[in-house]
Design a protein around this nucleic acid. Structure first.
Length: 514
RNA sequence: GGCCCUGUCGUCUAGCUUGGUCUAGGACGUCAGAUUCUCAAUCUGGUGACACGGGUUCAAAUCCCGUCAGGGCCA
């Protein structure tokens, strides 16, 4: 047996660029990454793009950008499409050593055979019909340009294939039941199991940490390794990430791509922390982990065997937690792209067409005084103004994109809401009108320089207290200013809006009640 | 259909290796209360699980067997 192993830990993640980077794949990437870093090993990113029709450059870009955004850094990067010669070399080797053979069976033949096998209650697998083809027969078929596949010849010895899974223990398979599987279509289109086995060896992968859905691929890969004289990596099969119905997480369960979560405004630390706990836990009651502490605490022994349901409620909770941890400045910087995207404001110094990934947004904040224009009113506002707005809503945010709908009233020239919303409990139009009128008078008397939260609170709470039920005064005030049934408190909002706008909005509310 | 994996609150899980400290712990959710003009945040409390059936044992969530259920892969 060729021994390619040094003691160095080398792991890989092997996504196909046939779709956006999936949560499940990313969780596997995370575990591989922290495992590698824990043991000073290497983490390899291998793009499995042998399926040239379905592989897309844009998806490869998405994989790279998403991992990068999460802070999962690879040490080596490979693309299978650039390694075709290697696979072909090994295919030829197997052919030459009679460990694989040409198969010219047609789809129809195969299908008929399968149906028959199922009908007699047999495992459906290839019969080995083309095993016995002579050299001449093969050459003749090749000359006729008949399409062919290369099949792996299951060795006759019927010994069980056994491997020791680091998470699940011994797993056994009967090679008889596998059948001569296809390793390549023609000579130049290697199939998944073959390319993976070859690459894992060539790349000196020490541990294959992957999803449970690959358990049944493992015996095939082991067979290939044995036929080629490769050493065997250690295997660890992770539990699957599940949807609410307990089946493998997929599109029909909703958002499954990391980029979708980025766009919605989840933080990388949230996703890291959350994904780590999908199938792993430290065995203590601590639940907040960043990538560094994960590397420190991680252990394959603490990995769960059963699948884990992806619970968005919990993700939201965690994201809210991390959002609340952010400094005023930081959270404002993070929210601004979403305000821009919602078409509420636009940056004055520098264009920023498209929020989150936009490099201009980042550079924006490096300028001394970034300024913005409110789209509806053309007013110019500065970073500090936005900071006040965002800060007011920071503790209410579950994900960043919510900022737009929560704070849009700060940027609207005209509020639109049902006039009945202004009524607290059983107030009638007249009572609301009088209340607004009273508010108008009090606020007009307040000097602009005293138009701040503390002062307003002092004055208005005193007034609100007189009525007994403070809602009678405060609710109409808040609705007049925001147009919403739920919002932050009226005093802080009033301060940000400023005297002039507050009076204008109260006046507009009065109009509604006339 | 065949093979394989799994099974503790609705969800993520601790406990299972080395049976007793488990009247099964934590977190999210949910419900109630406090706070409060609303929402959120925060605090307090409640709710809620060892899939089932047999063993083994003085004693089983923990060990053994079976059943059932769910999932994955292949085609």
């Amino acid at each position: 047996m060729i021994n390619s192993q040094s003691n160095k830990i080398r792991v890989r993640i092997a996504p196909s660029p046939t779709g956006l980077l999936h949560i499940g794949t990313t969780r596997t990437a995370l575990f591989n990454y922290i495992f590698a870093k824990k043991f000073q090993g290497n983490f390899i990113l291998r793009i499995e793009d042998t399926d040239l029709e379905r592989s897309k450059k844009e998806y490869e870009k998405d994989i790279v950008e998403s991992l990068d955004w999460l802070g999962i850094k690879w040490d080596e990067y490979y693309k299978q499409s650039e390694r075709m010669d290697i696979y072909e070399k090994y295919i030829k080797k197997l052919l030459k050593e009679d460990k694989a053979y040409y198969c010219f069976c047609t789809e129809e033949e195969l299908e008929a055979q399968k149906q028959y096998q199922i009908s007699i209650g047999q495992a459906a697998h290839y019969s080995g019909k083309c095993r016995g083809l002579s050299k001449d027969e093969i050459n003749e078929n090749l000359k006729e340009k008949k399409p062919f596949v290369i099949r792996f010849k299951i060795p006759d010895s019927s010994k069980k294939i056994v491997f020791d899974d680091l998470i699940r223990g011994k797993i056994e398979f009967d090679p008889e039941l596998i059948g001569d599987f296809i390793i390549s279509k023609g000579l130049k289109k290697p199939f998944y199991n073959f390319a993976a086995a070859v690459d894992d060896f060539e790349m000196k992968i020490s541990h294959v940490i992957r999803g449970e859905d690959h358990i049944s691929n493992t015996p095939k890969q082991i067979l290939i390794q044995e036929a080629l004289g490769f050493s065997q990596p250690k295997y660890a099969h992770l539990p699957l990430v599940l949807g609410p119905d307990k089946s493998k997480l997929s599109k029909r369960h909703g958002a499954t791509a990391i980029s979708e979560y980025i766009e919605k405004g989840y933080l990388p630390e949230t996703l890291i922390n959350f994904m780590a706990f999908l199938g792993w836990n430290p065995g203590t009651e601590r639940e907040i982990y960043n990538i560094v502490s994960l590397i420190k605490e991680f252990s394959l022994e603490n990995i769960q065997k059963g699948g884990a349901v992806f619970n968005v409620k919990r993700l939201d909770y965690l994201n809210g937690f991390y959002i609340r941890q952010k400094s005023d400045k930081k959270i404002t910087e993070l929210c601004i792209p979403y305000l821009i995207k919602a078409d509420l404001i636009e940056p004055l110094n520098g264009d920023c067409p498209d929020g989150v990934h936009c490099p201009e947004t980042v550079s924006l904040f490096e300028e001394e005084k970034p300024e913005f224009k409110i789209k509806e009113s053309n007013e110019i506002i500065d970073f500090d103004y936005l900071k006040k707005v965002v800060k007011t809503y920071q503790e209410r945010l579950r994900y960043l994109s919510e900022i737009a709908e929560l704070t849009d009233f700060f940027f609207k020239a005209q509020l639109e809401y049902d006039k009945d919303l202004l009524k607290w409990k059983d107030m009638d139009d007249k009572q609301v009108f009088d209340t607004l009128d009273k508010l108008e008078k009090i606020l007009s008397k307040t000097e602009s320089k005293d138009f701040n939260k503390e002062n307003l609170e002092k004055v208005l709470m005193l007034e609100a207290g007189k009525a007994g039920d403070r809602g009678k005064l405060l609710w109409p005030l808040r609705v007049a200013l925001t147009g919403k049934k739920a919002s932050a408190g009226p005093f802080e909002i009033a301060e940000i809006l400023g005297k002039e706008k507050c009076l204008k909005r109260i006046g507009e509310a009065k109009e509604l009640m006339k």
